[in-house]
Design a protein around this nucleic acid. Structure first.
Length: 444
RNA sequence: GACCCCAUCGUCUAGCGGUUAGGACACGACCCUUUCAAGGUCGAGACACGGGUUCGAUUCCCGUUGGGGUCACCA
């Protein structure tokens, strides 16, 4: 048993890709199937090493581990071999239109209100005509001949699915320059790598029909297929329109916790509550393909951010320590973490609170007299966890203030912020000198 | 234009002929905390429309509308 995730290294991974990867990865682990990272890098014009590195990096960030990597660019011989067999068996035919001619054809068909399907003009060329075309300097590209019958399969997510191949163009297998195209390389790989299940977006449904016919033509057994609904933007519009903001690297730079994202992506479109899981193993406990719906689902960045915040609020220091070290903050201790944790939306905000507690800042002074009084009341030494409570009680008795009137000015003077972690925990971290300086209106 | 998929609270969804249409997130109120946040309790909130089938449709069928996808010498 084997599953695969097959991105094309022609761009950065986004949340839609990641969801497909996660589903396949989870399925693989749940069924002891190997998980192959297959790089569909045959389009040499668009592929770059940078994207390959980025894909591996992003996947690793998500905690997805692959058993092995396969590159299509290193398997050209395999495709060539299968193609010759297809050719001998008469499943493919040479075509001679230029790309421009094909584009023109499609335009005319569309203008006439007809489906832009290849008309098989090259299928009926005589040997003589072919020879003439070649003499004229034209090189052949090759199409796979669809049999025109409906293709049906039992989809792991949709149930019975049917596609009319008569409404599809015969897919191109080999380009004029000899390079293999997606349909061929993909089917050959899936066959030779023993892929047993392919889960991908439903934008591939038409491809699946053609691929099943190709598997049959080769004499191989097609794997099982599952097509999940696509993710959309908040208005139900295609996610591809906001590609920049949903790229994995963008989210990572914004301080999104990988497991918060993985949890969201693994759970969206299922009937399970969308909530944080702390490991992929935990996600595995309850993972079934049958839970994934056929409906397009809205991917909401607000939900991601909330999940992310919640993830941080619940993060124990033992986990946070490593994450903080990654950020270059190895000196942060447990008391500090516990104090600020409940107010974090992003791990990056740790920097802000670190500065507030440990570096001079300009206090926000609303009522200098009141704050001076408070400063006088602040004990110089023998602080404990109750110091804040005792101190504010003393201020309250001395000033008659309570509630918001009491606390808000103190918070603003001490932190220069309107809200934040519990002052009870923050004050001891700050220390007497800094606190008193700020209360008296000094930069401290 | 053709082919395909989809349609339940704002969002993710449960439902597989008879339910007070359930849950989670968000939202509102209250409680707690002598601030904010967190937490607790309660509440409001949905079957796209029109035809059938049936004693009975959210559920089955057809159509309409709406959304999405595909129709590359990209993947």
């Amino acid at each position: 048993m084997a599953v695969r995730f097959a991105p094309s290294p022609t761009g950065y991974l986004h949340v839609g890709n990641a969801r497909t990867a996660i589903i396949n990865y989870l399925y693989g682990r749940a069924h002891a199937a190997s998980f192959i990272l297959r790089l569909d890098d045959t389009d040499t014009d668009r592929v770059s090493d940078e994207f390959i590195r980025a894909i591996e990096e992003d996947l690793a960030w998500l905690g997805i581990e692959w058993d092995r990597v396969e590159k299509q660019s290193e398997r050209l011989g395999e495709y060539e071999e299968v193609f010759s067999r297809l050719r001998e068996d008469g499943h493919v035919y040479p075509c001679f239109e230029t790309p421009e001619e094909l584009t023109l054809k499609r335009k005319t068909q569309l203008a006439a209100g007809k489906p832009p399907v290849y008309d098989r003009a090259s299928l009926n060329l005589s040997d003589k005509e072919i020879a003439a075309l070649k003499d004229a300097g034209r090189t052949a590209y090759w199409r796979f001949k669809l049999d025109g019958e409906p293709v049906t399969w039992v989809d792991e997510i949709h149930g019975d699915l049917k596609v009319e191949t008569s409404s599809l163009s015969d897919p191109v297998l080999i380009r004029g320059d000899g390079r293999p195209l997606y349909l061929l390389s993909s089917v050959v790989d899936d066959m030779q790598m023993g892929i047993t299940l392919i889960v991908r977006g439903e934008d591939h449904i038409a491809n699946t029909a053609a691929q099943i016919q190709l598997f049959n033509a080769i004499g191989a057994r097609a794997p099982r297929f599952g097509h999940h609904g696509l993710l959309t933007g908040p208005g139900g519009e295609p996610l591809s329109k906001r590609i920049g903001s949903i790229a994995l690297r963008t989210l990572r730079e914004q301080g999104v916790e990988p497991m918060a994202l993985v949890s969201y992506l693994a759970l969206i479109g299922t009937s399970d509550a969308i909530e944080n899981k702390f490991s992929t193993t935990e996600l595995l406990q309850d993972f079934y393909l049958s839970k994934i719906s056929r409906t397009p689902s809205v991917f909401d960045v607000d939900i991601l951010n909330r999940l992310n915040a919640k993830f941080l609020h619940d993060m124990p220091f033992s986990v946070a320590r490593d994450r903080l070290a990654d950020l270059g903050l190895p000196h942060i201790g447990e008391e500090f973490w516990i104090a600020i944790r409940p107010n974090l939306n992003s791990l990056k905000e740790v920097f802000d609170w670190w500065h507030i507690v440990h570096e001079p800042l300009d206090p926000l002074i609303d009522d200098a007299k009141f704050l001076e009084r408070a400063a006088d009341l602040l004990p110089e030494s023998s602080w404990s966890g109750d110091t804040w409570k005792e101190w504010t009680k003393a201020i309250s008795e001395a000033s008659g203030r309570k509630g918001k009137d009491l606390f808000h000015p103190l918070r603003r003077a001490l932190t220069a912020r309107d809200q934040g972690p519990e002052m009870q925990r923050l004050l001891p971290l700050m220390g007497y000198d800094r606190a008193v300086g700020r209360l008296r209106g000094h930069k401290a």
